[in-house]
Design a protein around this nucleic acid. Structure first.
Lengths: 192, 192
DNA sequence: TACAATGGCTAATATGATTAGCTAAAAGGA
DNA sequence: TCCTTTTAGCTAATCATATTAGCCATTGTA
């Protein structure tokens, strides 16, 4: 006894399990077994039980993603920076399917903490957009556009929703460039 | 007894319940209660139990969405048609939050039928894109781009994920126009 | 009318989450 | 060192839901 667990260890194990079997298969039963402990013992770390664990997974996921895209943006500017963070986002979702699910699933209908959790990522986008000639409003629109596109595209790709044999990588690249072109047009508009 | 249920009635009731309380709260217990029947009776209609019900909801949702966007495209061409089907998609997700969840949740890690289910919608996109000067490859990329954007944007919006007070409607409109601008650039490229 | 299929029911079982209450190990201070 | 408190585990019990088995009335049809 006295395995010596702590919240972080449990969350990381749960995240790995989610990536392997899908978030729906992360039960307290199997998680506890994996950790060498009884299910009820997990309540010593997560008072709120499974619900709280899922919330923590969500927070952990967004935090990890924030770190990844921040690293990706270092030393880059403008389109290069955008491309880099978008690719980092997509790579993250591909490498952490289960965790990425948790980031979206939890709090589907109660989003206070979810909203906080995504702020870090949003800030990175805004910083990168500062190097463009855009109004504040336009920046908000653009960040929303990228968030929507990235979440949807990654989610569909992760779950095998793009059936056509054409390279999904090419589609991603194409889409980013198309969006960036659209943004360039805006800037030309402003300079006039 | 002999309430006289059939699959369609049950699915529609389940869809309504999902829209009201979220898909996670559609249990056989409460669904049966709502239908004036015992939970076990539902197995006479859905051999596969809750899992099958969820699958049916998913299929029903994509089918309904296909109908909506098809109607929206009638009598329109090019950008007008694209805008119309995108708005129809977004309106659908806003009006059917729970069903829209079901469309994405079910089969997260088993996507054969899911893939079939989305084909109708994909076809509508392709038809609309036929009025543009684009290669087949480009069309595939573009459909993937729109699907990603629409699913992500709608999902984030539905769950209150866009915190900024700026109009989400404006953001949606802005994003569509930006993407369309990007696509126009492509066409100019081809004409050269 | 007989009789097969249908759609409902009750009762029993399984699985997983959760709670209550117990206890040994660890931590820390006199 | 010894006492005390907290912590992190355990067992046993409870609850909720899904699911299965088997019974029975209604319906619809030869």
């Amino acid at each position: 006894m006295k395995v010596g667990l702590d919240k972080t260890t449990i969350i990381e194990m749960a995240a790995n399990m989610a990536d392997e079997k899908g978030i729906a298969n992360v039960t307290l039963k199997v998680l506890a077994a994996e950790l060498g402990v009884k299910p009820s013992s997990l309540y010593k770390h997560f008072n709120g039980g499974l619900g709280e664990l899922n919330k923590e997974l969500m927070l952990y996921g967004w935090h990890s993603l924030e770190i990844e895209i921040t690293k990706a943006a270092i030393g880059k500017a403008k389109d290069d920076a955008i491309m880099a963070i978008c690719y980092a986002y997509r790579n993250f979702s591909a490498g952490h399917k289960g965790l990425f699910e948790a980031m979206q699933w939890y709090n589907m209908y109660r989003s206070e903490e979810h909203l906080q959790a995504t702020q870090g990522m949003v800030s990175v986008f805004f910083q990168v957009l500062d190097s463009y000639e855009l109004s504040e409003e336009q920046k908000v629109h653009i960040v929303r556009m990228f968030r929507g596109f990235l979440q949807g595209f990654s989610s569909i790709e992760s779950h095998g929703g793009y059936g056509n044999p054409l390279s999904i990588n090419d589609s991603f690249d194409f889409a980013l460039k198309t969006i960036l072109n659209g943004i360039h047009d805006l800037q030309e508009g402003m300079e006039k």
